[in-house]
Simulated assay, not measured.
Amino acid sequence: MTRRQRLTQEDEGSILLLSLGYAVIAIVLILVCVDATSLYLAQKRLESAADAAALAGADGFTLTVEAGEPMADLTDAGVYEQAADIVAAVGTATLISAGTPDGVSARVTVATVWHPPILTLFVPDGVPLEATATSRNALL
């Protein structure tokens, strides 16, 4: 018997179990990547909503004239009203706070809860997300 014939006769077993194991790992990895991508996009949408609400809040000023110079004064109520309208129009977030820390800037915080599109054992069901944005108005 030649060496080659001995090697082929000693080769017993199957790689089916190994292939199935790799397939399961690949499927789990794909599902987790889909959930991670969904989480990333949800955070970006929330940040965009916060940016839009802060920008609208910065437009909630009252115009005053002091010593011949126009001044844009922000109030907490004006910022909140403008930001609430934008957040309500978006509809995917909840307005947590909106106000002005210095009378010139509008700071808005929005929140939501993300749920994975494909529930797996490795991804939690429901992750709270929060985003804060600040916008400043300027009269030129």
Score class of each variant (00 low, 15 high):
residue 64 T to K: 09
residue 128 P to A: 06
residue 82 Q to E: 07
residue 51 D to A: 03
residue 111 A to V: 01
residue 77 A to H: 10
residue 63 L to Q: 11
residue 129 L to D: 07
residue 98 A to G: 00
residue 122 F to V: 07
residue 131 A to Y: 05
residue 5 Q to M: 06
residue 79 V to Q: 00
residue 57 G to C: 02
residue 97 S to D: 09
residue 88 A to L: 13
residue 115 H to W: 10
residue 33 C to S: 13
residue 27 I to T: 11
residue 75 T to D: 08
residue 10 E to H: 14
residue 71 M to Q: 13
residue 69 E to K: 15
residue 121 L to Q: 13
residue 55 L to F: 01
residue 70 P to R: 01
residue 49 A to H: 02
residue 25 I to E: 14
residue 6 R to S: 14
residue 68 G to I: 07
residue 53 A to I: 08
residue 29 L to S: 08
residue 31 L to N: 00
residue 137 N to T: 04
residue 19 S to T: 11
residue 124 P to N: 10
residue 59 D to T: 09
residue 89 A to Y: 15
residue 35 D to K: 03
residue 96 I to V: 15
residue 14 S to M: 10
residue 69 E to G: 14
residue 66 E to H: 14
residue 16 L to V: 15
residue 110 V to H: 08
residue 102 D to V: 08
residue 16 L to S: 10
residue 95 L to I: 04
residue 22 Y to E: 07
residue 49 A to M: 03
residue 14 S to R: 08
residue 96 I to K: 03
residue 59 D to Y: 10
residue 35 D to M: 04
residue 50 A to M: 06
residue 112 T to C: 07
residue 73 D to W: 10
residue 64 T to R: 09
residue 87 V to A: 04
residue 5 Q to A: 13
residue 58 A to K: 01
residue 110 V to G: 05
residue 28 V to W: 14
residue 37 T to P: 02
residue 29 L to E: 04
residue 95 L to H: 01
residue 10 E to F: 15
residue 140 L to W: 15
residue 29 L to T: 08
residue 31 L to E: 01
residue 111 A to Q: 05
residue 66 E to N: 14
residue 50 A to G: 05
residue 126 G to T: 14
residue 9 Q to E: 13
residue 46 L to G: 11
residue 64 T to L: 09
residue 64 T to P: 06
residue 136 R to K: 14
residue 75 T to C: 02
residue 33 C to T: 14
residue 67 A to T: 09
residue 1 M to R: 11
